[in-house]
Structures are given as structure tokens and as C-alpha cells.
């Protein structure tokens, strides 16, 4: 039976892993390759590395890092952050990334999804959507790490991304991210019913209950989290054992 995936996310700045609370207030937590290898040996199903460097030098360091990760890690990994062109995606593929994720660049130019997917396959393209609730019922897409609110609506944009060739959707609720009070469960359930590609839940994990809920009621195919893993609040083997006890299919 296909397992639900547990995905630690590592934000990388100038070669070091950091984790923001609501995308600000960065704290250093460790070496990206070593942390990835450790998560892999603990039973992580995939890894996501996001480059949050602002500088050209930082970007160059990140590409070198992707090569080093690819040499060391024997599970799939996705890389993203700052991919703004087909060339950026090709460069990361050559460095050994299994998938790339695009966010702001896809909002600005949706044809980029199609361009990359038609060359390297849909399985290579994860479209990340950061959205926040506006008013009572509407979820609006944000860009630039949550700083810019756009006119795009979450569900229609996710569907468009799928139609344009995305292989997976990684949705982060900006209202839940960093709060550790649970995922936006209803929104994931709706997305999962709307789309025929896998949905990765991100933002809000604070406990095993939260992760179990988003994988069952939330119908997500994978749960991504950062700080609860980085700071050892939940160990991946314990998490998977507890999910298995609740009859959620996980790889142990």
C-alpha cells in the first residue's frame, strides 16, 4: 500500500540550515548535508531544501550544496527557493535534484510550469503555494515568502498549476505556519478532492495529532514540517510508529 510521506523541510541560507517563525526571526540549526543524512537514517521519506539566500553568492553555494546532498542522500529530495527561470531548474537537475519547487516565479509566469514539466516531466515540478485567509471565506495566494498578497485565489491557482503540468502541490497556510497549532485541515481536504495530483501539507505541525489529522481528515498525501523535527520535539521513528498505531500507512 502506498505510504503517506513524512518530509522534513530544511531552509538554507548561505549554506546553513535555518528555520523562521512566520518567515522572520531566523535561527541557525545546522549543517544541511548532515541533517539530511540524519533525517534519512531516521526514516524520513523525502527531504525538501529551500534556499532563502538573497545574494548571488548564496545561490552559488546552494547549487554546490545540492551536488553534495545528491552524493550523500539515497532518498528523493526536492529543492527550491529563488528558482525564477527554466535555466535555474535545469542547473539544479544537473546538480542532482530529484524535484524542484517553484512559487513566486510560477505566479508571475505560469507558463514556466509547463516549460519545465514538458522537458523534465511533471514528477520533477512541485508547485508551492503560500496563501493566507482574507476575510471569511477567501484564501489568497502570496509571493516573496509571504510578503506580497496577490489577486490569485488558492483553489483556482492550484487547479491551474495542475493543468499546466505540476506533479504535486505543496500548500503552506501562512496563517498556520510557525504557530504549531495544527494544519489548515479543511483546506487540505478540499484541495485533495479538487486535484488529481498529490498534495503536501505544510505549516502548523505541533504534535503527532496534528500530523495524523492532516493525513486522514485533511486527506493530504504527505506532511511537511521543519521546526518540530529540527529541535527534536518529535522524532521521526516515534512519529511513524504512532501513525502506524492509528492505522495510517507509513514506511517503517
Amino acid at each position: 500500500m502506498l505510504a503517506k510521506r513524512i518530509i522534513p523541510c530544511l531552509d538554507v541560507k548561505d549554506g546553513e540550515v535555518v528555520k523562521g517563525i512566520n518567515f522572520v526571526g531566523l535561527r541557525e540549526v545546522g549543517d544541511p548535508v548532515e541533517m539530511g543524512a540524519e533525517y534519512s537514517s531516521q526514516g524520513a521519506d523525502e527531504l525538501v531544501y529551500l534556499d532563502i539566500s538573497a545574494s548571488f553568492e548564496g545561490r552559488k553555494t546552494f547549487t554546490e550544496l545540492v551536488s553534495a546532498i545528491s552524493e550523500r542522500i539515497n532518498i528523493p529530495f526536492t529543492v527550491g527557493g529563488g528558482i525564477s527561470s527554466f535555466g535555474d531548474a535545469a542547473r539544479l537537475l544537473d546538480a542532482g535534484a530529484d524535484k524542484i519547487t517553484i512559487n513566486t516565479a510560477a505566479v508571475n509566469d505560469p507558463s514556466l510550469i509547463t516549460h519545465i514539466a514538458s522537458h523534465y516531466g511533471s514528477q520533477f515540478v512541485v508547485v508551492t503555494i503560500d496563501a493566507r485567509k482574507v476575510g471569511e471565506a477567501s484564501w489568497k495566494v502570496t509571493t516573496h515568502g509571504g510578503k506580497v498578497l496577490t489577486d490569485k485565489e488558492l483553489y483556482s491557482w492550484a487547479k491551474e498549476a495542475e493543468d499546466r503540468g505540476a506533479g504535486e502541490i505543496l500548500f503552506t497556510s501562512m496563517d498556520h505556519d510557525g504557530e504549531k497549532k495544527g494544519y489548515a485541515v479543511n483546506e487540505y481536504a478540499r484541495l485533495s478532492e479538487l486535484l488529481s495530483i498529490p498534495v503536501i501539507a505544510s505549516g502548523g505541525a505541533g504534535s503527532v495529532d496534528d500530523i495524523a489529522e492532516v493525513l486522514t481528515t485533511g486527506k493530504a498525501d504527505a506532511a511537511l514540517a521543519a521546526s518540530i523535527f529540527h529541535f527534536g520535539e518529535i522524532k521521526i521513528p516515534d512519529l511513524k510508529r504512532q501513525l502506524a498505531e492509528r492505522e495510517i500507512s507509513v514506511r517503517i
Partner: peptide, 15 residues
């Protein structure tokens, strides 16, 4: 072929 609860591509860990 699309079937209930199975998203295609078959992506991830299976036995």
C-alpha cells in the same frame, strides 16, 4: 487508470 483514492502518477513509497 484513475481509480478511487489513487492519484496518478504513482509517486512515493510502496511495498
Amino acid at each position: 487508470r484513475p481509480s478511487e483514492g489513487a492519484k496518478i502518477p504513482h509517486m512515493g513509497w510502496n511495498t
